[in-house]
Amino acid sequence: MTEPVSPIPEEHPIVLEVENLQKSYRTGFWLNQKITPLKSCSLRVHQGETFGLLGPNGAGKTTLLKTLLGLVSPSAGSGRIFGYPLGDRQVRQKIGYLPENPYFYDYLTGWEFLEFAAGLFQVPASVQRQRISLLLEMVGLPQKDARKKQMRRYSKGMLQRVGMAQALINDPDLVFLDEPMSGLDPLGRFQIREIIVSLRKQGKTIFFNSHVLSDVEAICDRVAILAQGELICQGSVMDLLGVTEAYHVQGKGGHIDGLQQWVNPLEIQGDRWQGTITMAPERFLTLVAEMGGQILKLQLARPSLEEFFVEQLRQRGIATSH
């Protein structure tokens, strides 16, 4: 189980900040139509923080990411990474990037591709072998597949693992991940989540967007919701979802009548029961066990990040299919 994260103190240095960032494009046959996928975005990310960017399809998440990386130029506003303006070449040695749909030279093996990526960052040849081996182990890609199999024969999940390894090949201080869990099975998702937690423990800063909101809730210090090109809210998960000492509980069996003093309101259906408690969950678990009952589910009595996300979009009349 992933350990709960502790918020990064705000006095930590700011690694990334943007003010009123905007991006517009001209489209149409005569380029007479203007679209603005990114509208006046402002945010800050602190050193060592894991920052999650959420939003429905077409919200502008990838546009924001590409603007931060200097792959596209902003139409208005400004931003800095490590104190340098967006797009400054001096920043690139210190960042890693995994795009949502990476394209690789598929005639290469995974190992050859990582050697190529290491060469772009001028990683010494004496360091490459050990670093690539460690990264392959970290992302869960077998050495045999990496060395012998061309990437054109890789599954989507294998390609995602290679992509994660190349994003870390230069030992970056700031890592951008665009849908890092995309195409992965539950085990792969767990591995990527654990990698992000491991990077955080090393003091690295992670900026990523994802549709897997349960993962974001579990590992992010702060999150922001982007919708129709605008940041509609941002803050720590605790700040957004609220602080509560109450828990929703579901159980079965035991001396159900005796639960009235602890569970309020208590709803009973057959041998199943549910309700809300405000006592320490450890103490309640002990009491239920002593009464011969069994806990089926226990969770904080607050909305999940997914419920909060959907409600924020509904309040603004935005379609909630994501």
Results as ranks from 00 to 15, higher is better:
Cys41Tyr: 06
Leu64Gln: 03
Gln250Leu: 07
Met158Arg: 02
Gln90Tyr: 05
Glu230Cys: 09
Arg89Pro: 09
Met151Leu: 07
Leu21Trp: 09
Phe113Gln: 00
Ile195Trp: 02
Leu187Ala: 15
Phe309Gly: 12
Gly188Met: 06
Glu137Tyr: 03
Ser133Lys: 12
Lys149Trp: 00
Phe284Pro: 01
Ile192Met: 15
Glu115Ser: 09
Ile169Phe: 05
Ala125Cys: 05
Lys201Asp: 12
Glu49Pro: 08
Gln128Trp: 07
Arg129Trp: 06
Phe208Thr: 14
Pro281Arg: 03
Thr320Gly: 02
His322Pro: 00
Lys297Ser: 15
Met164Val: 04
Pro85Tyr: 10
Ile169Lys: 00
Met164Leu: 15
Gly235Phe: 10
Glu179Lys: 06
Leu241Val: 09
Lys23Glu: 10
Gly55Leu: 05
Ala280Phe: 08
Asn57Ser: 03
Arg200Ser: 13
Glu282Leu: 14
Pro99Asp: 03
Tyr97Pro: 03
Ile95Glu: 01
Thr278Lys: 14
Arg272Gly: 02
Glu267Leu: 13
Arg193Ala: 05
Gln234Ala: 03
Asp173Ile: 05
Ile232Gln: 01
Arg147Tyr: 09
Pro85Thr: 05
Gln33His: 11
Tyr25Gln: 11
Thr67Val: 12
Leu305Trp: 07
Ala218Gly: 04
Glu311Arg: 13
Met151Phe: 01
Arg129Tyr: 14
Gln191Ile: 15
Gln315Arg: 12
Thr109Phe: 00
Ser6Asp: 13
Ile232Pro: 00
Glu11Pro: 01
Gly28Lys: 02
Lys23Leu: 05
Ser236Trp: 06
Phe308Leu: 07
Ala218His: 11
Leu199Asn: 05
Ile35Arg: 00
Cys233Asn: 13
Gly110Ile: 00
Lys149Thr: 14
Gly275Met: 07
Lys297His: 15
Ile192Leu: 12
Val216Met: 12
Ile95Asp: 02
Leu136Trp: 08
Ala224Ser: 11
Gly188Val: 08
Ser210Lys: 06
Leu134Thr: 14
Leu53Ala: 01
Gln294Pro: 03
Pro74Ser: 10
